[in-house]
């Protein structure tokens, strides 16, 4: 694509589903996901990559959708909180967040879930420090993070028991 474009045709997968869009050259991935695909789970909390409320998985890696151009999604596989559970009804992290009261206002929650999912993929049995570090790109003003840590620990523990 060496032709400069004002609107860019892109094709990619969202939550396993192929989609094709025309996006603006300067449009962010977050804008395209929220406004064009109407997946409003990812939130804009700051628009400059400081809060993590817009965290999505791009090719299984957590990134801030506000710091990514929509055009960059071309050819990638995107996962948002709406597709976190995959085919299932609820992802173990969602269940654990519910059980451990890790949700207060809930605005940061989708982003935190995506970061936590990426963290557990890389570190299936993280200690508290690794969890804190893995979630350190997601600001939460309500919870003080403790119940979120506990939820992530519970999922890790559950996975460990399953494999034993």
């Amino acid at each position: 694509m060496i032709e400069p474009l004002k609107t860019v045709p892109i094709s990619f997968k969202v939550n396993g589903r192929p989609v094709s869009l025309e996006v603006g050259a300067g449009e962010t991935a977050l804008h395209a996901i929220r406004e064009r695909l109407q997946l409003t789970g990812a939130k804009e909390g700051c628009g400059i990559g400081e809060c993590g409320a817009c965290t999505i998985l791009v090719n299984a890696k957590a990134v801030n959708a506000c710091l990514m151009l929509a055009a960059q999604m071309d050819g990638t596989s995107i996962r948002t909180v709406e597709g976190l559970a995959g085919g299932g009804s609820i992802h173990p992290l969602q269940k654990a967040f519910l059980d451990h009261h890790a949700v207060q206002c809930g605005f940061c929650t989708p982003g935190l879930l995506m970061s936590a999912a990426a963290l557990l993929k890389e570190h299936p049995c993280p200690d508290r420090r690794t969890i804190a570090d893995g979630l350190s790109g997601n600001l939460c003003r309500c919870t003080g993070y403790r119940q979120i840590f506990q939820a992530v620990e519970a999922v890790a523990q559950g996975e460990k028991e399953k494999t034993q």
Partner: peptide
């Protein structure tokens, strides 16, 4: 969001440098 920029995506270093030599 700025609507007046244009997006270009070279797939090789040669393409990139070529574009830059014209529009750097």
């Amino acid at each position: 969001m700025r609507s007046d920029v244009r997006y270009v995506r070279p797939s090789s270093l040669g393409e990139a440098v070529g574009f830059l030599s014209d529009h750097g």
